Amino acid sequence: MHWRERAACLRVDPELFFPISNIGPTLRQVDEAKAVCGRCPVAEQCLDWAVRAGRVDGIWGGTTESERRAMRGVGTRRTQPCPSSM
């Protein structure tokens, strides 16, 4: 069985996971989507997929696109050599 088939979001309106912004009242929608992810048995696999896939809109694995972009940036900086070690 593929991880997506066990996702908690399968039983929720997909619109919840694609907020139109990340300010104002939409923050409540983001929080509600993240709450579904918080009780999802495959949230880790979902997040891993979204990080590897790159730019993916919506809430995946309990994170927004901007949060995942920040995660990728941190990983990229860690793999580059430190100037003092050259």
Rank of each mutant, 00 (worst) to 15 (best):
D31E: 15
R55V: 05
A8Y: 13
A53W: 14
T63C: 07
C9F: 10
D48Y: 01
E15I: 10
A33Q: 03
G58A: 08
P19V: 05
G38C: 02
R69A: 15
L16I: 11
L47P: 01
T63S: 08
C9L: 09
V74N: 03
V36K: 01
T76L: 12
R11Q: 15
P14Q: 04
W49C: 04
S84H: 01
K34Q: 12
E5S: 14
R28Y: 09
G24I: 11
I20E: 15
A8T: 15
C46R: 03
G38E: 03
C9K: 05
G73Y: 00
A8I: 15
W60V: 11
T76W: 11
F17T: 06
V30Q: 02
M1H: 07
P81L: 06
R55G: 02
R52E: 07
C9V: 14
W49A: 13
M1E: 12
A50S: 13
R77A: 15
G24N: 12
E15F: 08
W60A: 09
V74C: 00
A8W: 13
C9W: 10
R52A: 10
S21F: 07
E44T: 13
E5C: 06
G73L: 08
Q45R: 12
M1D: 13
V42G: 01
R4Y: 05
P83G: 02
E44A: 15
V51C: 09
R77M: 14
G38Y: 02
L16C: 05
I20G: 10
R69S: 12
V12W: 03
C9M: 09
R77F: 04
H2C: 02
A8V: 15
D13K: 05
G62C: 01
P25W: 04
D57H: 09
L16H: 06
S84N: 00
C40E: 07
P83N: 00
E15A: 15
T26Q: 11
C82W: 00
Q80S: 13
